[in-house]
Design a protein around this nucleic acid. Structure first.
Lengths: 205, 205
DNA sequence: AGATAGTTTAACCAAATAGTTAAAACAAAA
DNA sequence: TTTTGTTTTAACTATTTGGTTAAACTATCT
Protein backbone atom coordinates (compact mmCIF):
# COMPACT_ATOMS: atom_id res chain seq x y z
CA UNK A 1 0.00 0.00 0.00
CA UNK A 2 1.22 3.50 -0.66
CA UNK A 3 0.38 6.85 0.81
CA UNK A 4 0.49 10.19 -0.97
CA UNK A 5 2.99 12.52 0.54
CA UNK A 6 2.28 15.13 -2.12
CA UNK A 7 1.22 18.67 -1.27
CA UNK A 8 -2.46 17.75 -1.59
CA UNK A 9 -3.94 14.33 -1.96
CA UNK A 10 -6.36 13.68 -4.83
CA UNK A 11 -9.21 13.19 -2.38
CA UNK A 12 -8.56 16.58 -0.84
CA UNK A 13 -8.49 18.21 -4.26
CA UNK A 14 -11.81 16.58 -5.10
CA UNK A 15 -13.48 17.62 -1.87
CA UNK A 16 -12.30 21.18 -2.24
CA UNK A 17 -13.53 21.39 -5.82
CA UNK A 18 -16.82 19.69 -4.98
CA UNK A 19 -17.44 22.07 -2.11
CA UNK A 20 -16.90 25.07 -4.37
CA UNK A 21 -19.13 23.78 -7.18
CA UNK A 22 -21.95 22.44 -5.01
CA UNK A 23 -22.06 25.60 -2.92
CA UNK A 24 -22.36 27.84 -5.96
CA UNK A 25 -24.58 25.68 -8.14
CA UNK A 26 -26.50 23.53 -5.69
CA UNK A 27 -27.04 19.79 -6.05
CA UNK A 28 -29.15 20.06 -9.22
CA UNK A 29 -26.97 22.66 -10.92
CA UNK A 30 -23.61 21.07 -10.16
CA UNK A 31 -21.95 19.07 -12.93
CA UNK A 32 -19.59 16.20 -12.19
CA UNK A 33 -17.48 17.34 -15.12
CA UNK A 34 -17.09 20.79 -13.58
CA UNK A 35 -15.97 19.27 -10.30
CA UNK A 36 -13.46 17.08 -12.10
CA UNK A 37 -12.13 20.03 -14.10
CA UNK A 38 -11.81 22.20 -11.01
CA UNK A 39 -9.95 19.41 -9.22
CA UNK A 40 -7.66 18.96 -12.24
CA UNK A 41 -8.60 15.32 -12.78
CA UNK A 42 -10.97 13.47 -15.06
CA UNK A 43 -14.51 12.30 -14.46
CA UNK A 44 -13.73 8.60 -14.13
CA UNK A 45 -11.31 9.29 -11.32
CA UNK A 46 -14.00 11.28 -9.59
CA UNK A 47 -16.27 8.25 -9.67
CA UNK A 48 -13.40 6.08 -8.51
CA UNK A 49 -13.14 8.11 -5.31
CA UNK A 50 -16.86 8.77 -4.80
CA UNK A 51 -19.17 6.21 -6.31
CA UNK A 52 -21.73 8.74 -7.50
CA UNK A 53 -22.97 12.30 -7.30
CA UNK A 54 -25.25 11.64 -4.35
CA UNK A 55 -22.51 10.16 -2.21
CA UNK A 56 -20.23 13.07 -2.93
CA UNK A 57 -22.97 15.56 -2.30
CA UNK A 58 -23.82 14.00 1.02
CA UNK A 59 -20.26 14.41 2.26
CA UNK A 60 -20.22 18.07 1.28
CA UNK A 61 -23.70 18.77 2.57
CA UNK A 62 -23.12 17.18 5.97
CA UNK A 63 -19.89 19.04 6.46
CA UNK A 64 -21.54 22.31 5.47
CA UNK A 65 -24.59 21.70 7.64
CA UNK A 66 -22.40 20.98 10.64
CA UNK A 67 -20.59 24.25 10.12
CA UNK A 68 -23.83 26.14 9.62
CA UNK A 69 -25.30 24.82 12.84
CA UNK A 70 -22.33 25.81 14.87
CA UNK A 71 -20.95 24.51 18.12
CA UNK A 72 -23.55 26.26 20.18
CA UNK A 73 -22.39 24.61 23.37
CA UNK A 74 -21.06 28.07 24.14
CA UNK A 75 -24.60 29.37 24.11
CA UNK A 76 -26.28 26.57 25.96
CA UNK A 77 -23.77 25.12 28.37
CA UNK A 78 -21.50 27.72 29.88
CA UNK A 79 -22.37 29.91 32.82
CA UNK A 80 -21.54 33.26 31.22
CA UNK A 81 -24.00 36.14 31.54
CA UNK A 82 -26.51 36.27 28.70
CA UNK A 83 -25.18 39.49 27.21
CA UNK A 84 -21.67 38.06 26.95
CA UNK A 85 -23.02 34.96 25.27
CA UNK A 86 -24.84 37.09 22.71
CA UNK A 87 -21.71 39.11 21.95
CA UNK A 88 -19.56 36.01 21.67
CA UNK A 89 -21.99 34.16 19.45
CA UNK A 90 -22.66 36.94 16.96
CA UNK A 91 -19.03 37.82 16.33
CA UNK A 92 -17.86 34.20 16.13
CA UNK A 93 -20.70 33.21 13.87
CA UNK A 94 -20.39 36.18 11.54
CA UNK A 95 -16.67 35.64 11.25
CA UNK A 96 -17.34 32.13 10.04
CA UNK A 97 -19.94 33.38 7.57
CA UNK A 98 -17.54 35.97 6.17
CA UNK A 99 -15.32 33.12 5.09
CA UNK A 100 -18.18 30.98 3.75
CA UNK A 101 -20.33 33.36 1.75
CA UNK A 102 -22.29 30.69 -0.15
CA UNK A 103 -22.96 28.58 2.92
CA UNK A 104 -26.33 30.07 3.97
CA UNK A 105 -28.18 29.88 0.66
CA UNK A 106 -26.71 26.47 -0.04
CA UNK A 107 -27.87 24.99 3.24
CA UNK A 108 -31.24 26.72 3.28
CA UNK A 109 -32.06 25.66 -0.27
CA UNK A 110 -30.97 22.06 0.11
CA UNK A 111 -32.68 21.72 3.47
CA UNK A 112 -35.96 22.18 1.63
CA UNK A 113 -35.21 19.10 -0.42
CA UNK A 114 -33.26 16.69 1.78
CA UNK A 115 -34.72 14.58 4.53
CA UNK A 116 -34.00 16.64 7.62
CA UNK A 117 -34.28 13.88 10.19
CA UNK A 118 -31.65 11.83 8.40
CA UNK A 119 -29.06 14.61 8.53
CA UNK A 120 -29.87 15.61 12.05
CA UNK A 121 -29.07 12.03 13.01
CA UNK A 122 -25.68 12.16 11.32
CA UNK A 123 -24.74 15.55 12.70
CA UNK A 124 -25.87 15.36 16.28
CA UNK A 125 -26.61 11.67 16.65
CA UNK A 126 -30.33 12.38 16.87
CA UNK A 127 -29.91 14.79 19.76
CA UNK A 128 -30.81 18.44 19.51
CA UNK A 129 -29.02 21.27 21.24
CA UNK A 130 -30.44 21.74 24.75
CA UNK A 131 -32.43 24.87 24.03
CA UNK A 132 -34.04 24.49 27.44
CA UNK A 133 -30.77 25.48 29.16
CA UNK A 134 -30.74 28.84 27.42
CA UNK A 135 -34.45 29.30 27.90
CA UNK A 136 -33.97 28.84 31.64
CA UNK A 137 -31.27 31.48 31.69
CA UNK A 138 -33.48 33.92 29.80
CA UNK A 139 -36.30 33.37 32.28
CA UNK A 140 -33.90 33.69 35.21
CA UNK A 141 -32.40 36.97 34.04
CA UNK A 142 -35.91 38.24 33.28
CA UNK A 143 -36.98 37.37 36.82
CA UNK A 144 -33.95 39.19 38.19
CA UNK A 145 -35.04 42.21 36.20
CA UNK A 146 -31.89 42.32 34.06
CA UNK A 147 -33.82 41.80 30.82
CA UNK A 148 -37.41 42.08 29.67
CA UNK A 149 -39.36 38.83 29.37
CA UNK A 150 -38.99 37.39 25.88
CA UNK A 151 -39.75 34.08 24.24
CA UNK A 152 -36.28 32.45 24.06
CA UNK A 153 -37.10 30.89 20.72
CA UNK A 154 -37.78 34.31 19.27
CA UNK A 155 -34.59 35.68 20.76
CA UNK A 156 -32.57 32.97 19.07
CA UNK A 157 -34.44 33.40 15.77
CA UNK A 158 -33.79 37.14 15.83
CA UNK A 159 -30.13 36.71 16.63
CA UNK A 160 -29.47 34.11 13.95
CA UNK A 161 -31.57 36.03 11.42
CA UNK A 162 -29.54 39.19 11.76
CA UNK A 163 -26.28 37.27 11.54
CA UNK A 164 -27.13 35.08 8.56
CA UNK A 165 -29.58 36.92 6.36
CA UNK A 166 -27.36 39.78 5.17
CA UNK A 167 -24.85 37.25 3.85
CA UNK A 168 -27.54 35.22 2.11
CA UNK A 169 -28.97 38.40 0.62
CA UNK A 170 -25.62 39.88 -0.34
CA UNK A 171 -26.28 40.27 -4.09
CA UNK A 172 -29.62 41.90 -3.44
CA UNK A 173 -28.30 44.14 -0.69
CA UNK A 174 -25.47 45.38 -2.89
CA UNK A 175 -28.01 46.19 -5.56
CA UNK A 176 -30.59 47.93 -3.42
CA UNK A 177 -28.14 49.95 -1.37
CA UNK A 178 -25.74 50.53 -4.22
CA UNK A 179 -22.74 49.09 -2.42
CA UNK A 180 -19.37 48.11 -3.83
CA UNK A 181 -17.79 44.89 -2.66
CA UNK A 182 -15.57 46.87 -0.31
CA UNK A 183 -18.48 48.84 1.10
CA UNK A 184 -20.47 45.68 1.68
CA UNK A 185 -17.57 44.11 3.55
CA UNK A 186 -17.25 47.22 5.65
CA UNK A 187 -20.91 47.09 6.66
CA UNK A 188 -20.57 43.42 7.58
CA UNK A 189 -17.50 44.24 9.62
CA UNK A 190 -19.44 46.83 11.60
CA UNK A 191 -22.27 44.40 12.14
CA UNK A 192 -19.98 41.97 13.93
CA UNK A 193 -20.41 44.19 16.97
CA UNK A 194 -23.54 46.24 16.21
CA UNK A 195 -25.87 43.24 15.94
CA UNK A 196 -25.15 42.19 19.51
CA UNK A 197 -25.65 45.75 20.66
CA UNK A 198 -28.95 45.97 18.80
CA UNK A 199 -30.21 42.85 20.55
CA UNK A 200 -28.98 43.87 23.97
CA UNK A 201 -30.54 47.32 23.60
CA UNK A 202 -33.83 45.64 22.82
CA UNK A 203 -34.01 43.20 25.74
CA UNK A 204 -32.16 45.19 28.41
CA UNK A 205 -34.48 46.62 31.02
CA UNK B 1 -58.97 35.39 -33.50
CA UNK B 2 -60.55 33.78 -30.47
CA UNK B 3 -60.26 34.38 -26.78
CA UNK B 4 -60.51 31.76 -24.09
CA UNK B 5 -63.49 32.37 -21.89
CA UNK B 6 -62.72 29.23 -19.90
CA UNK B 7 -62.20 29.30 -16.15
CA UNK B 8 -58.45 29.56 -16.67
CA UNK B 9 -56.55 30.25 -19.85
CA UNK B 10 -53.75 27.88 -20.84
CA UNK B 11 -51.20 30.59 -20.32
CA UNK B 12 -52.39 31.12 -16.77
CA UNK B 13 -52.24 27.40 -16.07
CA UNK B 14 -48.68 27.30 -17.37
CA UNK B 15 -47.56 30.27 -15.33
CA UNK B 16 -49.10 28.88 -12.18
CA UNK B 17 -47.47 25.49 -12.70
CA UNK B 18 -44.13 27.03 -13.63
CA UNK B 19 -44.17 29.21 -10.55
CA UNK B 20 -44.76 26.20 -8.32
CA UNK B 21 -42.07 24.05 -9.92
CA UNK B 22 -39.40 26.74 -10.25
CA UNK B 23 -39.93 27.91 -6.69
CA UNK B 24 -39.52 24.42 -5.26
CA UNK B 25 -36.79 23.13 -7.54
CA UNK B 26 -34.96 26.22 -8.71
CA UNK B 27 -33.94 26.90 -12.29
CA UNK B 28 -31.49 23.99 -12.52
CA UNK B 29 -33.72 21.47 -10.77
CA UNK B 30 -36.94 22.30 -12.61
CA UNK B 31 -38.02 20.00 -15.46
CA UNK B 32 -40.09 21.27 -18.36
CA UNK B 33 -41.95 17.97 -18.30
CA UNK B 34 -42.94 18.51 -14.67
CA UNK B 35 -44.25 21.96 -15.47
CA UNK B 36 -46.24 20.59 -18.40
CA UNK B 37 -47.66 17.78 -16.27
CA UNK B 38 -48.62 20.14 -13.47
CA UNK B 39 -50.33 22.44 -15.97
CA UNK B 40 -52.16 19.46 -17.47
CA UNK B 41 -50.73 19.97 -20.96
CA UNK B 42 -47.85 18.49 -22.89
CA UNK B 43 -44.33 19.68 -23.41
CA UNK B 44 -44.72 20.91 -26.97
CA UNK B 45 -47.52 23.23 -25.98
CA UNK B 46 -45.33 24.58 -23.25
CA UNK B 47 -42.73 25.52 -25.85
CA UNK B 48 -45.43 26.95 -28.06
CA UNK B 49 -46.31 29.45 -25.35
CA UNK B 50 -42.81 30.10 -24.06
CA UNK B 51 -40.05 29.51 -26.54
CA UNK B 52 -37.69 27.94 -24.03
CA UNK B 53 -36.90 27.29 -20.39
CA UNK B 54 -34.95 30.52 -19.95
CA UNK B 55 -37.74 32.72 -21.25
CA UNK B 56 -40.26 31.05 -18.97
CA UNK B 57 -37.92 31.25 -16.03
CA UNK B 58 -37.35 34.94 -16.57
CA UNK B 59 -41.06 35.68 -16.38
CA UNK B 60 -41.41 33.76 -13.13
CA UNK B 61 -38.22 35.15 -11.64
CA UNK B 62 -39.07 38.75 -12.39
CA UNK B 63 -42.54 38.43 -10.93
CA UNK B 64 -41.15 36.75 -7.82
CA UNK B 65 -38.38 39.31 -7.41
CA UNK B 66 -40.85 42.15 -7.65
CA UNK B 67 -42.93 40.59 -4.91
CA UNK B 68 -39.89 39.93 -2.75
CA UNK B 69 -38.74 43.54 -3.01
CA UNK B 70 -42.06 44.91 -1.97
CA UNK B 71 -43.70 48.25 -2.59
CA UNK B 72 -41.66 49.98 0.01
CA UNK B 73 -43.06 53.36 -0.92
CA UNK B 74 -44.83 53.06 2.39
CA UNK B 75 -41.46 53.04 4.11
CA UNK B 76 -39.78 55.73 2.11
CA UNK B 77 -42.40 58.17 0.97
CA UNK B 78 -45.17 58.70 3.51
CA UNK B 79 -44.96 61.02 6.47
CA UNK B 80 -45.91 58.50 9.15
CA UNK B 81 -43.86 58.32 12.33
CA UNK B 82 -40.99 55.81 12.10
CA UNK B 83 -42.44 53.39 14.63
CA UNK B 84 -45.71 53.15 12.70
CA UNK B 85 -43.81 52.49 9.50
CA UNK B 86 -41.89 49.68 11.15
CA UNK B 87 -45.06 48.09 12.46
CA UNK B 88 -46.84 48.41 9.13
CA UNK B 89 -43.93 47.04 7.13
CA UNK B 90 -43.22 43.97 9.26
CA UNK B 91 -46.82 42.76 9.44
CA UNK B 92 -47.56 43.41 5.78
CA UNK B 93 -44.34 41.79 4.64
CA UNK B 94 -44.63 38.75 6.87
CA UNK B 95 -48.21 38.22 5.75
CA UNK B 96 -47.02 38.07 2.17
CA UNK B 97 -44.23 35.64 3.12
CA UNK B 98 -46.68 33.35 4.92
CA UNK B 99 -48.43 32.87 1.61
CA UNK B 100 -45.21 32.45 -0.40
CA UNK B 101 -43.08 30.12 1.70
CA UNK B 102 -40.61 29.23 -1.07
CA UNK B 103 -40.11 32.79 -2.23
CA UNK B 104 -37.11 33.73 -0.04
CA UNK B 105 -34.82 30.79 -0.79
CA UNK B 106 -35.81 30.87 -4.46
CA UNK B 107 -34.93 34.53 -4.89
CA UNK B 108 -31.81 34.46 -2.73
CA UNK B 109 -30.41 31.42 -4.51
CA UNK B 110 -31.13 32.61 -8.03
CA UNK B 111 -29.87 36.10 -7.29
CA UNK B 112 -26.44 34.58 -6.82
CA UNK B 113 -26.56 33.38 -10.41
CA UNK B 114 -28.49 35.96 -12.41
CA UNK B 115 -27.17 39.29 -13.54
CA UNK B 116 -28.51 41.63 -10.92
CA UNK B 117 -28.32 44.86 -12.90
CA UNK B 118 -30.42 43.38 -15.65
CA UNK B 119 -33.30 42.54 -13.34
CA UNK B 120 -33.09 45.73 -11.39
CA UNK B 121 -33.63 47.50 -14.70
CA UNK B 122 -36.74 45.47 -15.46
CA UNK B 123 -38.23 45.78 -12.00
CA UNK B 124 -37.61 49.40 -11.14
CA UNK B 125 -36.53 50.82 -14.46
CA UNK B 126 -32.99 51.27 -13.21
CA UNK B 127 -34.08 53.32 -10.21
CA UNK B 128 -33.51 52.19 -6.68
CA UNK B 129 -35.82 52.89 -3.75
CA UNK B 130 -34.97 56.29 -2.22
CA UNK B 131 -33.24 55.00 0.87
CA UNK B 132 -32.12 58.55 1.56
CA UNK B 133 -35.66 59.59 2.49
CA UNK B 134 -35.84 57.02 5.24
CA UNK B 135 -32.29 57.77 6.33
CA UNK B 136 -33.26 61.40 6.75
CA UNK B 137 -36.22 60.47 8.93
CA UNK B 138 -34.03 58.24 11.09
CA UNK B 139 -31.55 61.08 11.58
CA UNK B 140 -34.35 63.52 12.28
CA UNK B 141 -36.02 61.37 14.92
CA UNK B 142 -32.61 60.69 16.44
CA UNK B 143 -31.97 64.43 16.64
CA UNK B 144 -35.33 64.92 18.31
CA UNK B 145 -34.29 62.33 20.87
CA UNK B 146 -37.08 59.89 19.98
CA UNK B 147 -34.66 57.16 18.95
CA UNK B 148 -31.01 56.35 19.43
CA UNK B 149 -28.73 57.14 16.51
CA UNK B 150 -28.44 54.14 14.20
CA UNK B 151 -27.12 53.53 10.72
CA UNK B 152 -30.33 53.41 8.62
CA UNK B 153 -28.89 50.72 6.41
CA UNK B 154 -28.37 48.50 9.43
CA UNK B 155 -31.87 49.22 10.67
CA UNK B 156 -33.34 48.08 7.36
CA UNK B 157 -31.09 45.03 7.22
CA UNK B 158 -32.13 44.02 10.73
CA UNK B 159 -35.79 44.52 10.00
CA UNK B 160 -35.81 42.56 6.75
CA UNK B 161 -33.58 39.87 8.26
CA UNK B 162 -35.97 39.13 11.08
CA UNK B 163 -38.94 39.08 8.72
CA UNK B 164 -37.46 36.88 6.02
CA UNK B 165 -34.95 34.55 7.58
CA UNK B 166 -37.28 32.43 9.71
CA UNK B 167 -39.29 31.56 6.60
CA UNK B 168 -36.20 30.72 4.61
CA UNK B 169 -34.90 28.61 7.48
CA UNK B 170 -38.22 26.92 8.21
CA UNK B 171 -37.10 23.30 7.74
CA UNK B 172 -34.06 23.87 9.91
CA UNK B 173 -35.99 25.75 12.57
CA UNK B 174 -38.59 23.02 12.82
CA UNK B 175 -35.81 20.50 13.28
CA UNK B 176 -33.75 22.39 15.83
CA UNK B 177 -36.66 23.56 17.95
CA UNK B 178 -38.69 20.40 17.46
CA UNK B 179 -41.74 22.20 16.11
CA UNK B 180 -44.75 20.75 14.36
CA UNK B 181 -46.16 22.55 11.34
CA UNK B 182 -48.86 24.05 13.52
CA UNK B 183 -46.40 25.19 16.14
CA UNK B 184 -44.19 26.80 13.54
CA UNK B 185 -47.15 28.69 12.10
CA UNK B 186 -48.08 29.85 15.55
CA UNK B 187 -44.61 31.24 16.19
CA UNK B 188 -44.68 33.08 12.86
CA UNK B 189 -48.08 34.47 13.73
CA UNK B 190 -46.71 35.89 16.97
CA UNK B 191 -43.74 37.34 15.17
CA UNK B 192 -45.98 39.46 12.97
CA UNK B 193 -46.21 41.84 15.91
CA UNK B 194 -43.27 40.88 18.12
CA UNK B 195 -40.62 41.67 15.50
CA UNK B 196 -41.69 45.29 15.28
CA UNK B 197 -41.74 45.50 19.06
CA UNK B 198 -38.25 44.01 19.26
CA UNK B 199 -36.92 46.65 16.89
CA UNK B 200 -38.71 49.53 18.54
CA UNK B 201 -37.49 48.44 21.97
CA UNK B 202 -33.97 48.46 20.62
CA UNK B 203 -33.93 51.92 19.05
CA UNK B 204 -36.32 53.77 21.36
CA UNK B 205 -34.57 56.13 23.72
C1' DA C 1 13.63 -7.30 -12.85
C1' DG C 2 9.01 -9.01 -11.73
C1' DA C 3 4.91 -9.06 -9.08
C1' DT C 4 1.38 -6.51 -6.79
C1' DA C 5 -1.72 -3.06 -5.28
C1' DG C 6 -3.25 1.28 -5.98
C1' DT C 7 -4.05 5.25 -9.35
C1' DT C 8 -5.25 7.52 -13.67
C1' DT C 9 -6.93 7.89 -18.25
C1' DA C 10 -9.51 7.77 -22.92
C1' DA C 11 -13.29 5.96 -24.91
C1' DC C 12 -17.76 4.46 -24.44
C1' DC C 13 -22.84 3.73 -22.91
C1' DA C 14 -27.47 4.69 -21.34
C1' DA C 15 -30.70 7.70 -19.46
C1' DA C 16 -32.60 12.14 -19.00
C1' DT C 17 -34.03 16.21 -20.92
C1' DA C 18 -34.54 20.58 -23.80
C1' DG C 19 -36.35 21.55 -27.91
C1' DT C 20 -38.64 20.51 -32.94
C1' DT C 21 -41.90 19.01 -36.43
C1' DA C 22 -45.75 17.89 -38.86
C1' DA C 23 -50.20 16.69 -38.57
C1' DA C 24 -54.75 16.55 -36.17
C1' DA C 25 -58.46 18.90 -33.60
C1' DC C 26 -60.97 22.95 -32.73
C1' DA C 27 -63.32 27.33 -32.95
C1' DA C 28 -64.94 31.25 -35.34
C1' DA C 29 -66.10 33.49 -39.58
C1' DA C 30 -67.73 33.25 -44.44
C1' DT D 1 -70.57 23.59 -45.06
C1' DT D 2 -66.21 25.33 -46.14
C1' DT D 3 -62.42 28.12 -44.97
C1' DT D 4 -59.04 30.04 -42.00
C1' DG D 5 -56.28 30.79 -38.26
C1' DT D 6 -55.28 29.02 -33.66
C1' DT D 7 -54.55 25.40 -30.29
C1' DT D 8 -53.04 20.80 -29.11
C1' DT D 9 -50.87 16.52 -29.64
C1' DA D 10 -47.72 12.34 -30.56
C1' DA D 11 -43.53 11.24 -32.17
C1' DC D 12 -38.97 12.46 -33.01
C1' DT D 13 -34.08 14.66 -32.62
C1' DA D 14 -29.99 16.44 -30.52
C1' DT D 15 -27.50 17.32 -26.55
C1' DT D 16 -26.20 16.99 -22.02
C1' DT D 17 -24.79 14.36 -18.37
C1' DG D 18 -24.16 10.63 -14.86
C1' DG D 19 -21.92 6.60 -14.81
C1' DT D 20 -18.92 2.33 -16.73
C1' DT D 21 -15.08 -0.30 -18.71
C1' DA D 22 -10.85 -1.90 -19.84
C1' DA D 23 -6.44 -0.74 -20.42
C1' DA D 24 -2.23 1.92 -19.12
C1' DC D 25 0.61 3.89 -15.70
C1' DT D 26 3.10 4.36 -11.08
C1' DA D 27 5.08 3.33 -6.92
C1' DT D 28 6.49 -0.07 -3.61
C1' DC D 29 7.99 -4.46 -2.16
C1' DT D 30 10.39 -8.99 -3.00
Amino acid sequence: MNKKQKDQTTEQKILEAARAVFMEQGMAGARMQDIADKAGINKALLHYYFRNKNKLFEVIFLDAAARFMPRVSMLFESEQPLFDKIRAFTTTYMNMLSENPYLPTFILTEMHKQDGAKFLEKIWGGEKPPVEKLAAQVRKEAAKGIIKPINPLELILNMVSMCVFPFAAKPMAKLVFNLSEAQFKQVMEQRKTSVAQFIIDSIRK
